[in-house]
């Protein structure tokens, strides 16, 4: 905590305005979420016949029963959890390793590597060649097809390098004098020092993996290996939202369009687990992670 030496009225006014603004802001963010959750528990008939529902007359678990009652649900959940854990760990390792290497100024070919990474950020290959590579690696219908092609990106590597650059050089020099090799400097000094950044990146990766959708559609044919988002989307088939139109309308066979309450429940199920991760990571964003090691 920072000591407030001269807590004047100006400061207090600032704190109030600042806090007030933030609270207003949070409310604007929270209302739609609240609405989503409430709707997911609303009886679907009530949803369609009442104007605005801030609190349902009739609570209903139907939407959840339908979604969770799918025999594949647990399967897909496991796939998604696997992706969000193993995938995130691998991504951090690959991104961190590369970012650390190119943050060392004396490294040969460093600039070449950096420019090459930057180019991949700007030139995005089409879907077809990536599909062919995944197929040629024999990864179709394997969960690895959901991890390997999205291990990292130029954006993550360059950004993480920015964090490593911010670490004072005095620290790792000191470590090296103590006889540390590059690897142990990386493990013992760099990683702990950049913990807030690593946690942030871990969160990015985890959310990315959790939301795996398009690759799931492209690379996974067997339903038992579908990640959660693909399963939910399939249960909520609504081909008319993106384009489609007249032709599709007549051809959706006997399947009903998903009700709005069902969609909301799917959102809740798909996002709550990953949202709960954040508060656990939050403490790592607290200030002062670095100070301790400087003093040692």
């Amino acid at each position: 905590m920072i000591m407030e030496v001269n807590s004047s009225w100006k400061d207090r006014l600032f704190a109030c305005a600042n806090g007030g603004l933030l609270i207003l802001f949070s409310l604007a963010m929270v209302f739609p979420i609240y609405y989503t959750i409430v709707l997911s528990f609303t009886d679907s008939t009530e949803y369609y016949t009442r104007d605005l529902i801030l609190w349902p007359h009739q609570w209903s678990l139907d939407a959840y029963k339908y979604l969770l009652g799918n025999g594949l649900f647990v399967n897909s959940l496991m796939v998604s959890v696997f992706l969000a854990t193993v995938g995130t760990a691998l991504s951090l390792l690959v991104t961190g390793g590369l970012a650390y290497a190119i943050s060392c100024r004396r490294l040969r070919f460093r600039k070449t590597m950096m420019f090459m990474i930057l180019l991949t950020f700007l030139f995005t290959p089409g879907l077809v060649p990536v599909y062919l590579i995944v197929r040629n690696l024999g990864l179709i219908d394997s969960v690895w097809s959901l991890i390997l092609p999205s291990l990292t990106s130029g954006w993550y590597v360059l950004l993480m390098k920015g964090f490593f650059d911010g670490i004072p050089d005095s620290l790792d020099e000191a470590a090296r004098i103590d006889g540390c090799t590059e690897i142990s400097v990386f493990w013992r000094i760099i990683i702990p020092l950049s913990l807030p950044a690593i946690v942030a990146f871990g969160l990015f990766f985890a959310v990315g993996y959790w939301n795996t959708y398009f690759n799931g559609i492209m690379f996974i044919n067997q339903q038992s290996k579908w990640p959660l988002q693909v399963l939910l989307q399939n249960m909520l088939v609504d081909p008319t939202t993106m384009g489609g139109g007249e032709q599709n309308v007549s051809l959706q066979m006997n399947r009903q369009l998903p009700t709005e309450t069902l969609k909301m429940a799917a959102v809740v199920i798909a996002t709550i687990p990953i949202m709960l991760v954040y508060p656990f990571l939050q403490k790592h964003f607290a200030t002062g992670a670095m100070v301790g090691s400087v003093k040692e």
């Binding site: 879907l127 559609i217 492209m218 693909v230 989307q233 399939n234 088939v237 081909p239 959706q252």
Partner: peptide, 8 residues
């Protein structure tokens, strides 16, 4: 799956 068959 019909939601993405076109792309696939």
């Amino acid at each position: 799956s019909p939601s993405t068959s076109e792309e696939k």
